[in-house]
Amino acid sequence: MATVTRPAAGRRAPRTEWDSHDFPTRHYDLVKEFVIALVVMTLLTAALAAIFSSPDDKAITMARWAQADPNDVIATAAGELAGTTTSATYGAPYNHAAEGQSVLGVPLQKWGGVRIPVSSQDLVLQPLAGVRGDPALSQALGTWRGSTTDQQKSWASAYVDALDKAGGDPAKVATGDFGPVPALAAGLLSVARSGALEGALTSAGTFYGGDQTRSVLLLADGAYLEDTAVAQHLGGDQWGMMNEVGNYPGQPWMWLYTFWYQVKPFSTSDNADAEVWALMMLLTLLLMLVPFIPGLRDVPRWIPVHRLVWRDYYRRHPRT
């Protein structure tokens, strides 16, 4: 029977180990093994799916955000106009507002370039521009657009500060020189409440809105999204990367990646994302190159787990 053959002799170096084709063989049914494995894994998957199901927490809508935390929407709108939100101060790939992160001085984020330009002010102004039948809002928009950049910045920053002093409650804000900013912020809250904000941000001017970049950036500039995630134990400093909502299984394979975010120096670094990524790439490379790294590749010889794997063989073929 010609089922077992030696590979053609050739460029092989003088052998220090015997190879698989030199050993006696036993019957082994690979196809049967695969079919049984497939049946077992299918049944196991179906059983786990039936018993434990999977999470389906509804996505946060802008209307839900406005309903649950209207003051957060107002503060976020004011922040976008003042240029103080996360997205407004982000840098690449959205704008030039910051240098971005670097690894060992290499500005990878900047090198990526501003390829997805997002104007934070437009996250507020563009949805408002589509509102009809609200003369006060139209006038506020006109006032904003007719003003200098410095004046806009001064109004918006003053309102952001005033909101801060009032504990985030627009009703308690002291009078000040805010220009049209309170009206614009209230206008965005109104659009959000109506359920029209997502559409205005993702599909205005294009029938097929498949890109949620601007919606997610606006939502993430507020506090509501993160607060909701932290309440679910999904925060970055809660090992959130490997967690899932409720008691559903998460991504246990992310344990090492998320671990680094929990410890210094990464937990306090402004460049943590880039640094942790670089460290994980290095560790992945080490894992990949284990066969070539003296010491690392010898660990299995020093800790003889293989004596268990091949105990039957070692018993029958004691070392000579």
């Binding site: 690449a92 970049t213 997610v216």
Partner: peptide, 28 residues
């Protein structure tokens, strides 16, 4: 779903930090 929103919002910083987010937009 909510998980997608949060992972996109949080994960973008990791992808953007290495310059890849400019081409591989996880918010899309």
């Amino acid at each position: 779903d909510f998980t997608s929103q949060w992972i996109a919002a949080e994960g973008k910083d990791g992808i953007n930090a290495i310059g890849v987010g400019a081409f591989f937009n996880i918010l899309n």
